[in-house]
Amino acid sequence: MFTAWRKSRARKPLALLLAVSGVLAGACGTAGGGSGASDRGSERLRAFVSIPPQRYFVERVGGEHVNTSVLLPPAASPALYEPKPSELRSLSGTDVYFAVDVPFERSVADRIRSAGGDDMRWVRTWQDVDRGHLEGGKPDPHIWLSPRRVKTQAETIAAALSRIDPEHERDYRENLRRFEERVDALDADITSELEPVAGKTFMSFHPAWHYFADDYDLKMLPIESGGKEPGAARLREIIERAENRDIRAVFVQPRFSDDDARTIAEQVGATVEPLDPLARDWEKNMRHVATELADSLRSGF
Protein backbone atom coordinates (compact mmCIF):
# COMPACT_ATOMS: atom_id res chain seq x y z
CA MET A 1 0.00 0.00 0.00
CA PHE A 2 2.84 2.28 0.79
CA THR A 3 4.27 1.53 -2.64
CA ALA A 4 0.91 2.23 -4.28
CA TRP A 5 0.56 5.52 -2.39
CA ARG A 6 4.00 6.64 -3.50
CA LYS A 7 3.12 5.82 -7.13
CA SER A 8 -0.12 7.74 -6.80
CA ARG A 9 1.69 10.75 -5.32
CA ALA A 10 4.22 10.55 -8.13
CA ARG A 11 1.51 10.56 -10.77
CA LYS A 12 -0.30 13.67 -9.52
CA PRO A 13 2.44 16.21 -10.28
CA LEU A 14 2.89 14.60 -13.69
CA ALA A 15 -0.82 14.65 -14.37
CA LEU A 16 -1.02 18.24 -13.18
CA LEU A 17 1.92 19.22 -15.40
CA LEU A 18 0.34 17.61 -18.43
CA ALA A 19 -2.97 19.30 -17.71
CA VAL A 20 -1.34 22.71 -17.36
CA SER A 21 0.69 22.11 -20.52
CA GLY A 22 -2.50 21.24 -22.37
CA VAL A 23 -4.17 24.45 -21.24
CA LEU A 24 -1.16 26.52 -22.26
CA ALA A 25 -0.95 24.77 -25.60
CA GLY A 26 -4.66 25.41 -26.14
CA ALA A 27 -4.22 29.07 -25.25
CA CYS A 28 -1.32 29.38 -27.66
CA GLY A 29 -3.36 27.66 -30.34
CA THR A 30 -6.19 30.12 -29.79
CA ALA A 31 -3.85 33.09 -30.00
CA GLY A 32 -2.24 31.78 -33.18
CA GLY A 33 -5.41 30.27 -34.51
CA GLY A 34 -4.31 27.41 -36.77
CA SER A 35 -2.41 27.98 -40.00
CA GLY A 36 -1.26 30.78 -42.31
CA ALA A 37 -1.51 34.35 -41.06
CA SER A 38 -3.24 33.14 -37.91
CA ASP A 39 0.00 31.53 -36.72
CA ARG A 40 1.66 34.93 -36.51
CA GLY A 41 0.41 35.94 -33.10
CA SER A 42 1.46 39.57 -32.73
CA GLU A 43 3.74 39.57 -35.79
CA ARG A 44 2.81 42.22 -38.36
CA LEU A 45 1.96 41.38 -41.95
CA ARG A 46 4.68 42.28 -44.46
CA ALA A 47 3.30 44.25 -47.40
CA PHE A 48 4.99 45.73 -50.45
CA VAL A 49 3.69 48.38 -52.84
CA SER A 50 5.11 49.89 -56.00
CA ILE A 51 4.90 53.64 -55.25
CA PRO A 52 4.69 55.89 -52.15
CA PRO A 53 1.00 56.90 -52.41
CA GLN A 54 0.05 53.22 -52.29
CA ARG A 55 1.99 52.91 -49.06
CA TYR A 56 -0.10 55.75 -47.63
CA PHE A 57 -3.30 53.84 -48.38
CA VAL A 58 -2.09 50.51 -47.00
CA GLU A 59 -0.82 52.18 -43.82
CA ARG A 60 -4.16 53.91 -43.27
CA VAL A 61 -6.15 50.71 -43.73
CA GLY A 62 -3.67 48.26 -42.20
CA GLY A 63 -2.77 50.37 -39.20
CA GLU A 64 -0.62 48.71 -36.57
CA HIS A 65 -1.03 45.24 -38.07
CA VAL A 66 0.87 45.85 -41.31
CA ASN A 67 4.45 46.85 -42.10
CA THR A 68 4.59 48.36 -45.60
CA SER A 69 7.59 48.91 -47.89
CA VAL A 70 7.91 50.62 -51.29
CA LEU A 71 9.71 48.88 -54.15
CA LEU A 72 10.34 52.01 -56.26
CA PRO A 73 13.48 53.88 -55.09
CA PRO A 74 12.95 57.60 -54.27
CA ALA A 75 14.64 59.04 -57.37
CA ALA A 76 13.34 56.47 -59.87
CA SER A 77 10.56 56.83 -62.46
CA PRO A 78 7.75 54.26 -62.51
CA ALA A 79 7.95 54.39 -66.30
CA LEU A 80 11.65 53.53 -66.53
CA TYR A 81 12.52 51.65 -63.34
CA GLU A 82 13.81 48.09 -63.51
CA PRO A 83 14.39 46.45 -60.12
CA LYS A 84 17.89 45.23 -59.33
CA PRO A 85 18.31 41.64 -58.10
CA SER A 86 19.14 42.97 -54.63
CA GLU A 87 15.91 44.99 -54.59
CA LEU A 88 13.87 41.99 -55.67
CA ARG A 89 15.45 39.89 -52.92
CA SER A 90 13.92 42.27 -50.37
CA LEU A 91 10.53 40.85 -51.36
CA SER A 92 11.38 37.48 -49.82
CA GLY A 93 8.96 36.64 -47.04
CA THR A 94 6.40 39.24 -48.12
CA ASP A 95 2.79 38.35 -47.35
CA VAL A 96 1.09 40.59 -49.88
CA TYR A 97 2.01 42.86 -52.79
CA PHE A 98 -0.48 45.63 -53.67
CA ALA A 99 -0.04 46.38 -57.37
CA VAL A 100 -1.40 49.46 -59.14
CA ASP A 101 -0.36 48.63 -62.74
CA VAL A 102 2.36 51.26 -63.24
CA PRO A 103 4.61 50.54 -66.26
CA PHE A 104 7.46 48.82 -64.42
CA GLU A 105 5.00 46.42 -62.75
CA ARG A 106 3.67 45.40 -66.14
CA SER A 107 7.13 44.63 -67.46
CA VAL A 108 8.52 42.76 -64.44
CA ALA A 109 5.40 41.33 -62.79
CA ASP A 110 6.64 37.76 -63.15
CA ARG A 111 9.97 38.63 -61.53
CA ILE A 112 8.23 40.39 -58.63
CA ARG A 113 5.95 37.42 -58.04
CA SER A 114 8.84 34.99 -58.23
CA ALA A 115 10.90 37.02 -55.76
CA GLY A 116 7.98 37.15 -53.32
CA GLY A 117 7.54 33.39 -53.39
CA ASP A 118 4.50 31.14 -53.62
CA ASP A 119 2.97 32.47 -50.40
CA MET A 120 2.94 36.13 -51.47
CA ARG A 121 -0.52 37.34 -52.48
CA TRP A 122 -0.71 39.62 -55.52
CA VAL A 123 -3.55 42.13 -55.18
CA ARG A 124 -4.64 44.25 -58.13
CA THR A 125 -5.81 47.44 -56.46
CA TRP A 126 -7.24 48.71 -59.75
CA GLN A 127 -9.87 45.98 -59.86
CA ASP A 128 -13.37 47.48 -59.77
CA VAL A 129 -11.92 50.95 -60.53
CA ASP A 130 -13.30 52.82 -63.53
CA ARG A 131 -10.16 53.30 -65.63
CA GLY A 132 -9.59 55.26 -68.81
CA HIS A 133 -6.86 54.89 -71.43
CA LEU A 134 -3.83 56.90 -72.39
CA GLU A 135 -3.06 57.87 -75.96
CA GLY A 136 -1.93 54.66 -77.60
CA GLY A 137 -4.56 52.53 -75.90
CA LYS A 138 -2.82 51.48 -72.68
CA PRO A 139 -4.82 51.73 -69.44
CA ASP A 140 -4.13 54.88 -67.46
CA PRO A 141 -2.64 53.67 -64.13
CA HIS A 142 -2.80 57.02 -62.26
CA ILE A 143 -5.91 56.12 -60.26
CA TRP A 144 -4.28 57.19 -56.98
CA LEU A 145 -4.60 60.81 -58.11
CA SER A 146 -8.39 60.60 -57.99
CA PRO A 147 -9.79 60.67 -54.43
CA ARG A 148 -13.01 59.05 -55.64
CA ARG A 149 -11.14 56.14 -57.19
CA VAL A 150 -8.89 55.86 -54.14
CA LYS A 151 -11.92 54.88 -52.07
CA THR A 152 -12.40 51.84 -54.31
CA GLN A 153 -8.71 51.00 -53.98
CA ALA A 154 -8.96 51.23 -50.21
CA GLU A 155 -11.91 48.84 -50.18
CA THR A 156 -9.87 46.33 -52.19
CA ILE A 157 -6.95 46.72 -49.76
CA ALA A 158 -9.20 46.18 -46.73
CA ALA A 159 -10.80 43.10 -48.26
CA ALA A 160 -7.40 41.58 -49.07
CA LEU A 161 -5.99 42.22 -45.59
CA SER A 162 -9.11 40.73 -44.02
CA ARG A 163 -8.73 37.55 -46.07
CA ILE A 164 -5.05 37.20 -45.20
CA ASP A 165 -5.44 38.16 -41.54
CA PRO A 166 -9.06 37.50 -40.50
CA GLU A 167 -8.17 37.88 -36.82
CA HIS A 168 -7.93 41.67 -37.34
CA GLU A 169 -10.73 42.09 -39.90
CA ARG A 170 -12.72 44.34 -37.57
CA ASP A 171 -9.74 46.69 -37.25
CA TYR A 172 -9.24 46.81 -41.01
CA ARG A 173 -12.90 47.60 -41.58
CA GLU A 174 -12.90 50.33 -38.96
CA ASN A 175 -9.69 51.81 -40.40
CA LEU A 176 -11.29 51.74 -43.85
CA ARG A 177 -14.36 53.57 -42.56
CA ARG A 178 -12.24 56.32 -40.99
CA PHE A 179 -10.06 56.65 -44.08
CA GLU A 180 -13.07 56.92 -46.40
CA GLU A 181 -14.47 59.69 -44.20
CA ARG A 182 -11.20 61.62 -44.62
CA VAL A 183 -11.24 61.05 -48.38
CA ASP A 184 -14.83 62.31 -48.59
CA ALA A 185 -13.85 65.45 -46.67
CA LEU A 186 -10.82 65.93 -48.92
CA ASP A 187 -12.96 65.49 -52.03
CA ALA A 188 -15.44 68.08 -50.77
CA ASP A 189 -12.67 70.59 -50.00
CA ILE A 190 -11.05 70.16 -53.42
CA THR A 191 -14.42 70.46 -55.16
CA SER A 192 -15.06 73.74 -53.33
CA GLU A 193 -11.61 75.11 -54.17
CA LEU A 194 -11.74 74.22 -57.86
CA GLU A 195 -15.40 75.01 -58.54
CA PRO A 196 -14.66 78.65 -59.50
CA VAL A 197 -12.28 77.45 -62.25
CA ALA A 198 -14.39 74.54 -63.54
CA GLY A 199 -14.07 73.92 -67.25
CA LYS A 200 -10.63 75.51 -67.56
CA THR A 201 -7.50 73.91 -69.02
CA PHE A 202 -4.13 73.32 -67.41
CA MET A 203 -0.94 72.03 -69.01
CA SER A 204 1.13 69.15 -67.65
CA PHE A 205 4.25 67.61 -69.08
CA HIS A 206 3.35 64.03 -68.07
CA PRO A 207 -0.29 62.91 -68.60
CA ALA A 208 -0.73 61.90 -64.96
CA TRP A 209 -3.70 64.09 -64.04
CA HIS A 210 -6.53 62.91 -66.31
CA TYR A 211 -8.51 61.36 -63.45
CA PHE A 212 -8.00 64.39 -61.22
CA ALA A 213 -9.16 66.67 -64.03
CA ASP A 214 -12.17 64.42 -64.65
CA ASP A 215 -13.17 64.47 -60.96
CA TYR A 216 -13.16 68.27 -60.77
CA ASP A 217 -14.39 69.33 -64.22
CA LEU A 218 -11.02 70.50 -65.53
CA LYS A 219 -9.19 69.80 -68.79
CA MET A 220 -5.60 68.66 -69.00
CA LEU A 221 -3.35 69.44 -71.96
CA PRO A 222 -0.37 67.04 -71.84
CA ILE A 223 2.97 67.69 -73.48
CA GLU A 224 4.18 64.11 -73.48
CA SER A 225 2.17 61.74 -75.67
CA GLY A 226 2.35 57.95 -75.79
CA GLY A 227 5.31 57.99 -73.42
CA LYS A 228 7.34 60.09 -75.86
CA GLU A 229 8.49 63.69 -75.79
CA PRO A 230 6.99 65.85 -78.57
CA GLY A 231 8.68 66.40 -81.91
CA ALA A 232 9.00 69.83 -83.51
CA ALA A 233 5.57 69.73 -85.18
CA ARG A 234 3.83 68.54 -82.02
CA LEU A 235 5.67 71.19 -79.99
CA ARG A 236 4.40 73.96 -82.29
CA GLU A 237 0.85 72.59 -81.99
CA ILE A 238 1.06 72.54 -78.19
CA ILE A 239 2.39 76.11 -78.08
CA GLU A 240 -0.49 77.30 -80.27
CA ARG A 241 -3.07 75.55 -78.10
CA ALA A 242 -1.46 76.96 -74.94
CA GLU A 243 -1.61 80.49 -76.37
CA ASN A 244 -5.28 80.07 -77.28
CA ARG A 245 -6.08 79.01 -73.72
CA ASP A 246 -3.92 81.66 -72.05
CA ILE A 247 -1.96 79.04 -70.12
CA ARG A 248 -0.11 80.75 -67.25
CA ALA A 249 1.71 77.72 -65.77
CA VAL A 250 3.18 74.52 -67.15
CA PHE A 251 3.27 71.78 -64.55
CA VAL A 252 6.17 69.36 -64.44
CA GLN A 253 7.11 66.52 -62.15
CA PRO A 254 10.34 65.17 -60.69
CA ARG A 255 12.04 62.30 -62.53
CA PHE A 256 11.21 63.75 -65.99
CA SER A 257 13.12 66.24 -68.11
CA ASP A 258 11.49 69.69 -68.09
CA ASP A 259 13.30 71.06 -71.18
CA ASP A 260 10.23 70.97 -73.45
CA ALA A 261 8.05 72.41 -70.70
CA ARG A 262 10.45 75.33 -70.30
CA THR A 263 10.51 75.90 -74.06
CA ILE A 264 6.71 76.08 -74.15
CA ALA A 265 6.57 78.27 -71.05
CA GLU A 266 9.01 80.76 -72.57
CA GLN A 267 6.98 80.92 -75.78
CA VAL A 268 3.65 81.60 -74.06
CA GLY A 269 4.87 83.65 -71.10
CA ALA A 270 4.05 80.98 -68.49
CA THR A 271 5.91 79.78 -65.43
CA VAL A 272 7.11 76.23 -64.82
CA GLU A 273 5.69 74.76 -61.62
CA PRO A 274 6.32 71.37 -59.98
CA LEU A 275 3.58 68.89 -59.11
CA ASP A 276 4.60 65.51 -57.76
CA PRO A 277 2.17 62.62 -58.38
CA LEU A 278 4.30 60.33 -56.21
CA ALA A 279 4.46 62.39 -53.01
CA ARG A 280 4.59 60.32 -49.83
CA ASP A 281 1.89 62.24 -47.94
CA TRP A 282 -1.00 61.67 -50.32
CA GLU A 283 -3.67 63.80 -48.64
CA LYS A 284 -1.37 66.78 -48.11
CA ASN A 285 -0.23 66.52 -51.71
CA MET A 286 -3.77 66.43 -53.09
CA ARG A 287 -4.57 69.64 -51.23
CA HIS A 288 -1.37 71.22 -52.55
CA VAL A 289 -2.22 70.22 -56.12
CA ALA A 290 -5.70 71.70 -55.83
CA THR A 291 -4.33 75.00 -54.53
CA GLU A 292 -1.66 75.23 -57.22
CA LEU A 293 -4.16 74.54 -59.99
CA ALA A 294 -6.73 76.95 -58.57
CA ASP A 295 -4.17 79.75 -58.32
CA SER A 296 -2.92 79.11 -61.85
CA LEU A 297 -6.34 78.88 -63.46
CA ARG A 298 -7.76 81.90 -61.65
CA SER A 299 -5.01 84.04 -63.13
CA GLY A 300 -5.36 82.51 -66.58
CA PHE A 301 -8.07 82.36 -69.20
Rank of each mutant, 00 (worst) to 15 (best):
V183T: 06
G199A: 09
P230K: 01
A233F: 09
P222H: 08
A249K: 12
V197M: 08
S204G: 12
M203F: 02
I239C: 01
L221E: 09
W209K: 03
P207G: 04
P222A: 04
T201A: 06
A213Y: 01
G226V: 05
E181L: 12
R248A: 12
T191H: 14
S225M: 03
F212K: 06
R241C: 05
E180K: 15
Y211Q: 09
E180H: 14
A233P: 03
A233G: 09
E193A: 14
R248G: 04
A232W: 05
I238Y: 02
Y216K: 07
A185D: 13
R236K: 15
I239P: 09
V183H: 02
E224I: 10
E180Y: 02
F202I: 01
E224S: 07
I247L: 02
G227A: 10
R245Q: 14
P222D: 02
D214H: 13
A233C: 02
A185C: 02
S192H: 14
D246F: 02
K228R: 15
L218I: 08
E181H: 12
V183D: 05
H210C: 09
I190S: 04
A213V: 10
E224M: 12
E237S: 12
H206Y: 11
K228F: 07
H206Q: 13
A233D: 11
I223N: 00
S225I: 10
W209T: 07
K200G: 04
D184K: 08
L221P: 03
L194F: 11
A198N: 05
R245T: 08
D189G: 06
A249H: 09
D184T: 12
P207S: 06
T191Q: 15
W209I: 05
S225Q: 11
R182N: 13
R245K: 14
L186Q: 06
I190R: 05
I190D: 01
E195H: 12
V250S: 00
Y211V: 05
G231V: 04
P230L: 03
F212N: 06
A213D: 07
D184E: 14
H210L: 14
S204V: 12
D187I: 00
R182H: 13
T191E: 15
A185M: 07
S204M: 11
K219M: 07
R241I: 13
D214L: 10
F212A: 08
I239L: 01
E181R: 14
R248C: 07
I247M: 01
R182A: 14
I223W: 01
W209S: 03
A188H: 11
A208H: 03
A188M: 08
F251Y: 07
H210E: 14
A213H: 05
G226L: 10
R234D: 14
M203E: 03
I223F: 00
S192Y: 10
P222M: 05
A233M: 09
